[in-house]
Design a protein around this nucleic acid. Structure first.
Lengths: 254, 254
DNA sequence: CTTATCGGTTTGTCCGACAAAGCTAGATTT
DNA sequence: AAATCTAGCTTTGTCGGACAAACCGATAAG
């Protein structure tokens, strides 16, 4: 065995992939910082010694991966991947996998409770101010389901932000993106739903202010249970997210 | 104002993006099912009436987004986005955002506990058999940090799978991908670390078997606390994941 | 029945080209 | 002199065509 010559695994990745990988490496290990330019396509052609079409295919890969973007004048520059864009992809994946609202609800319960726990522990004054502003605006649109749903989503993003835990912020995002669009249906379908929602937000904010973890968790649970009760009035928890949305979109179009 | 003609917002998305969007729509709303072929590049050229280079750029976008892949013979086909690939992108994003191990640990604690709770409730016999197999193999390599680290990662994936909650499986993946590579360092650095790890896994499996949620949660917490204690012996929880890995890689190369 | 061979496809890459949009710097106007 | 305009250069997005290598399917040879 020892005398058998060892060959390195032959590299058969297509050129566009290697271009993408090479640029990715430079960004990942910090030699190109977010915001810095990557160079023009022509420059990349010269540096890599491949055709422009090949470079462009590599660029498309990185662009979709969120590692580079084009600035106002369409020049390439490195950027910090936005959670939101990636989260959208994940949400889409969840839909295609036909996950149910029960799975969504269970996971969101876990993550929202964790968020509020973190927020109670570590929210800054600025976080509290943002939340207070949100709650105030919510109270103004309590009769408007669409507006309230949007502010509800924002409220929970702000709570996660207040937890100062970016991993948690990221982890909750895909589920939240699928979860919260239903808020509009529910608030619209349940009398007093809007008022209950704002009340819960107010209590949660208050708990964060007072650093009262127990109250924060309690009201977060109630808030989500409210959602669940409302949801079960209009659809089944065990149907897939996709089907439920399709039907709702269909019903709305009638 | 009323007399001013209203123009529809002119569509200025580049052609490759439109190609990608068009194919994506077909997949999302189920007209092309996972596994079905998309057609050859030439066919797409004819259908969309654009150049092959343009089609190829669109394909790269979808490929990176995980919506299509090339089968063994490099023909295009729709596919279910793999969590793993998307999770890798997210992990990379987390690194670039310089998250700390404290954030990672806190979130993983939440998600792993939720996973084990779900597993205790809903694990099938097949899930249990997979876990048992994993634990057995772990016992065999208890002295081999690299092998044990790999099986540890697998164990936690299997627990999440046993929870029957795909949203949870997905949510834990990005953090896990960053979290578990450290297991090797820790097991290697702490005497009896390997044995403790296997013991914890055995207890968790046992709890799942007996549907004993309290024990499952307890041992999962202990298991992660063990990780944390081990980690703090070799690095600080408050440093960024990136820096810690860089240093470890550097030290390993010496 | 397996293996070898041979076209026809398909992908990956390259070359060259051009219109549209952006940028730059010199020319023009106020 | 400052602001504006304009013409030219650059860069991107798209196109057409080309070719080698890999792959597929079917046929021929062992």
């Amino acid at each position: 065995m020892a005398t058998t010559p060892q060959f390195r695994r032959i590299d058969l990745a297509p050129a566009y992939q290697k271009v993408a990988d090479a640029i990715e490496r430079e960004i990942i290990n910090g030699r190109i910082k977010p915001g810095e330019p990557i160079g023009t396509e022509q420059q990349l052609v010269e540096q890599f010694g491949v055709n422009r079409s090949t470079v462009r295919e590599g660029i498309r890969v990185l662009e979709e991966g969120g590692l580079i973007r084009r600035d106002s004048s369409r020049r390439l520059q490195a950027c910090l991947p936005r959670y939101n864009k990636l989260a959208t992809r994940l949400s889409r994946a969840l839909i295609l996998h036909e996950v149910t609202f029960r799975e969504l609800f269970e996971t969101s319960m876990t993550l929202e409770v964790a968020s509020v726990e973190g927020a109670v522990e570590r929210a800054t004054e600025e976080n509290v101010a943002e939340l207070a502003d949100n709650v105030e605006r919510s109270a103004d649109v309590v009769g408007n389901p669409a507006g309230l749903a949007e502010l509800d989503a924002e409220f929970h993003v702000l709570v996660a932000k207040a937890s100062q835990n970016r991993v948690l912020q990221l982890a909750r995002e895909p589920a939240a993106q699928l979860f919260f669009p239903t808020t509009e249906m529910i608030v619209g379908g349940v009398p007093e739903g809007g008022a209950r929602l704002v009340e819960a937000h107010r209590r949660i904010l208050d708990a964060i202010r007072r650093r009262d973890k127990e109250a924060g968790v309690l009201w977060t649970r109630r808030h989500l249970q409210d959602w669940r009760r409302g949801f079960e009035k209009i659809a089944s928890l065990d149907r897939s997210v996709e089907h439920t949305y399709m039907e709702h979109a269909y019903a709305a179009r009638q």
